[in-house]
Simulated scan of single mutants.
Amino acid sequence: MKNIVYVSTAVTLMHENQLMDILHNSRLHNEALGITGILLYSEGTFIQVLEGKDNMINALYARIKADQRHKDVVTLIDEPIAEKSFAKWLMGFAVADKDKTQKLVGYLRSVKELDLNSNNSAAIDAIKAFIETNELDVKY
């Protein structure tokens, strides 16, 4: 089992319906493959954590890197893991304008829902840093 954490830049700022399509499709795909993780978006920047079987994560990440909706994909972490940090999340999701998306299944009303204090993984540290740097309106 492994995780990959990456950051990327949207080619254009994403509209609410585009983000919701990403969330919906990711959740369906991830459930079928046993992949968990989280996607955060703020003003054109994404950070995503993907967790699951090595071959599944590698294949998904190759597709993500080829996706034309973003550019400058930078891998922050690519490492084996003993356990998932986001095991309860097919795709946790947060954006800076939470008022428009709060009612969606999978949307994070609070980062407390992720239990970011449960372990000291590099993926958790990367997510915390992104939240703090982008001043997302989610609290942990």
Rank of each mutant, 00 (worst) to 15 (best):
K2D: 02
K2Q: 12
I4M: 00
I4W: 01
V5M: 01
V7E: 12
T9Q: 15
T9H: 14
T9R: 15
T9V: 15
V11N: 09
L13K: 14
L13F: 11
Q18C: 05
Q18P: 01
L19Q: 05
L19Y: 03
L19M: 11
M20Q: 12
D21F: 01
I22P: 01
L23I: 03
L23W: 00
N25V: 07
R27Y: 00
H29Y: 10
L33T: 05
G34P: 04
G34H: 05
T36A: 02
I38A: 13
L39C: 06
L39D: 02
S42A: 15
E43Y: 14
E43D: 15
G44H: 06
V49K: 07
G52L: 02
D54L: 10
D54V: 09
L60N: 00
Y61A: 08
Y61R: 04
Y61S: 07
I64G: 12
I64D: 10
D67Y: 10
Q68G: 07
Q68P: 11
Q68I: 13
Q68C: 06
R69T: 05
R69K: 10
H70F: 10
K71P: 01
K71E: 14
D72N: 15
V74Q: 14
E79Y: 04
I81H: 09
A82E: 15
A82N: 15
A82F: 11
E83N: 10
F86C: 09
K88E: 13
W89S: 08
W89A: 07
L90F: 06
L90T: 06
L90C: 09
M91Q: 09
G92I: 05
V95I: 15
V95G: 03
V95K: 01
A96Q: 15
K98F: 03
D99C: 02
K100Y: 08
T101E: 02
T101H: 12
Q102I: 08
V105D: 06
Y107G: 03
Y107N: 10
R109S: 13
R109T: 13
K112L: 09
K112W: 04
E113L: 09
L114I: 11
L116H: 03
N119K: 03
N120A: 12
S121H: 05
A122H: 07
A123T: 08
A123D: 03
I124W: 03
D125Y: 01
A126S: 14
I127T: 08
K128N: 06
F130Q: 08
I131A: 07
T133S: 13
N134V: 03
N134Y: 10
E135K: 15
L136H: 05
D137C: 12
V138P: 06
K139L: 05
Y140P: 04
